[in-house]
Each structure stands twice: as C-alpha cells, then as structure tokens.
C-alpha cells in the first residue's frame, strides 16, 4: 500500500522531464546557450560582417535610396593614400605612446612607494584610485574647465608656481600644447590603474627573495634590476596591453576635451572615424577605416600577447 503522497507524486507528471525528456544532453546544452549566442550574433558578429561588406561599397547612410555600387578595394586604397588619415594615425600613436609612457613611469613609481606599507598607505591608495572611478565623459568635461585659460585652476596654478601670466598660454587651444593636454588628462585618469596592476605584481614577490638577496650582498639598486623589475615585468606588460588597446580607440575623453582640435592636431583615429561616418556620412569609406583600425589593434594585440607569454614563461 502506498501512501497518499506517494500516489500523488506518481500521478503528477514531471513537467520539465516531460518537455525535455526526449532531448539529448547536447540539445539541452544548446538550448541554454542559444540566447546568448543569438545576442552575440545580432550585436557583434552581424555588424562586423555588415561593416566588412559595406567597406567595399560607396554606401552612404544618409542616402539609403541611392544606387549601391561595389567599388572593390577603392576605399582601402583611398584611406591608405590619404595624408589626413596618416596624420590621424600619427596623432594616435603620439597619444598612445606618450600616455602609456607617463602612466608606466608614474604608476610604477607610485606602486613602489605604496608598497613600502607606510602608515596610512591604504588611505592614500584609495585617494589615488579615485580618478579612474570617474566616467571619462565627466573627466573630459571638468578638465575643459580646469584647463580654461582665464578661470581655469590649472593655468592659475602654473602661474603661481612659475610666475607666468595665466592667460598667456592655452592648454587646449594651442597647437603645440593640445596633444600634451590630452596625454596629461589621460595620465591623470589612468595612472592609478597602472599603479594597481604594478602593486599586484610587487605584492606577489615574496619577502624572502629580498632577504636572500640582502644576505647575498645585493645593493638595493641591484635588487631592483635583478628581482623587482623582472618579476613585475609580466604585470607591466599586461598594463601596457590594456592601456594600449583602450587608448587606441580612445574617443569620449578626447572628443569632449578638444574634439580633435585645434585644427586637427588632436584628431586621433577614432575621431576621424566619427567625422567620416557621422559628419560626412561616407559610410562605405568609414567602414573600411573601421576595419583597418580593427585589424591593426587585433593584430598588434595578438603579437603582443605572444611576447607576453614568452616573458611569463621565463
């Protein structure tokens, strides 16, 4: 005799089992991942493929009814022979190289200081980390005020320190200074990030290695070069990779701060791309430019990761 409860269970068909009952494990697995695969296809893969297709046409998004003509590799040829594009690439390279150089030197230096674990070091770590928690749009916006020649704090601070007239120079408006303004603001915002990665690297070096070196009569200088630097190197390279990818496609902060100006001095590749795509509406042309940028970053990152793995294996 079975109990009432047992009979009830036996009579109620298991709904999930009923529906999935005749599906294989593999089919169930597919069922679970399909939504995310579809989403990925819709907003990543499809646009990429469409962009590749558009890059071979003369398509303009503001004239959807115009005759679509396939132009072959013409867009690519035009881009690679366009001095303006090469200028934008140079501006990008200048920005990427110098911002990373500054962030590395300052970030590593700060990490070395913080790693000494002085009193209140965690408080200072938090303070130092604040800039990178802000939105790039906010940063771009308030630095335009800070760098304002008449009322901006930056010019006045320089004036107090050096005695020059605060309105005698313009960080954003000057052709020579503008590229350095965006580098400075980027370094201000992202040095903490590099510091954090370096700090993780420094903390991963066990104390006894330094103690062994001390007993082995290695000077602090030699300890730095033969222990600290080699052991932090993989972390440094990772920081360079992250910052390079990020700054290569940097748009928001530069757009708010200088919008590529004055003239086109700070017109980095992403700003050129936006102008071509959404101001001149040369959709086919800008698609080709986007593909070129994508291949550049993707290719460079791949080569770099291989180098990084070699350093890690050492």
């Amino acid at each position: 005799m079975s109990t009432l409860a047992e009979r009830a269970v036996a009579r109620t068909p298991n709904r999930l089992a009923l529906r999935l009952g005749n599906l294989s494990d593999k089919a169930i697995a597919w069922l679970f991942i399909t939504p995310s695969v579809l989403l990925l296809l819709a907003i990543n893969i499809f646009p990429l493929l469409w962009t590749i297709q558009l890059s071979f046409t003369n398509y303009r998004a503001n004239r959807p009814n115009a005759v679509l003509r396939y132009v072959g590799l013409d867009n690519y040829r035009d881009i690679l022979t366009d001095p303006e594009i090469w200028h934008a690439m140079q501006a990008t390279a200048h920005f990427v190289l110098w911002s990373i150089a500054m962030e590395l030197v300052l970030g590593f230096g700060l990490a070395l200081l913080i790693n000494r674990r002085f009193r209140g070091h965690s408080f200072w770590t938090t303070i130092i980390l604040l800039p990178m928690m802000l939105s790039p749009a906010v940063v771009g916006n308030f630095w335009t005020f800070l760098l304002q020649p008449q009322i901006g704090l930056f010019n006045n601070a320089i004036a107090v320190l050096t005695g020059v007239d605060p309105s005698s120079f313009q960080m954003i408006g000057d052709v020579r200074l503008a590229p350095w303004s965006i580098i400075m603001v980027d370094a201000w915002m992202w040095t903490p990030y590099v510091m954090l990665i370096c700090l993780a690297g420094l903390r991963s070096i066990p104390d006894y290695i330094y103690e062994a070196a001390e007993v082995d009569r290695a000077s602090p200088w030699r300890q730095f070069w033969s222990i600290t630097l080699p052991m932090v190197m993989p972390f440094l390279m990772l920081a360079i990779l992250f910052r390079a990818i990020e700054n290569f496609k940097m748009f928001d902060m530069v757009n708010l701060l200088t919008s590529g100006g004055p003239g086109s001095t700070t017109e980095v590749a992403s700003i050129t791309l936006k102008r071509e795509a959404f101001e001149k509406w040369r959709t086919g042309y800008s698609s080709a430019l986007a593909i070129i940028l994508f291949v550049t970053v993707f290719g460079a990152a791949n080569i770099y990761v291989k180098a990084l793995n070699r350093v890690k294996q050492r």
């Binding site: 066990p206 006894y208 290695i209 103690e211 062994a212 070196a213 001390e214 007993v215 082995d216 009569r217 290695a218 033969s226 222990i227 080699p230 052991m231 050492r314």
Partner: peptide, 21 residues
C-alpha cells in the same frame, strides 16, 4: 650591521631562488 656586512650565508625554508634566472 646590515646583513651584507656580516659575512653569513642563509638557506631559507622556502626555495628562495630567483625564478627568472
């Protein structure tokens, strides 16, 4: 005196080798 001035050699419990060398 600091360790370098003492003319001692130390073998640690952990393998304190310089890993990249």
């Amino acid at each position: 005196a600091v360790p370098a001035e003492r003319d001692v050699a130390f073998v640690f419990q952990q393998y304190s080798l310089y890993p990249h060398l």
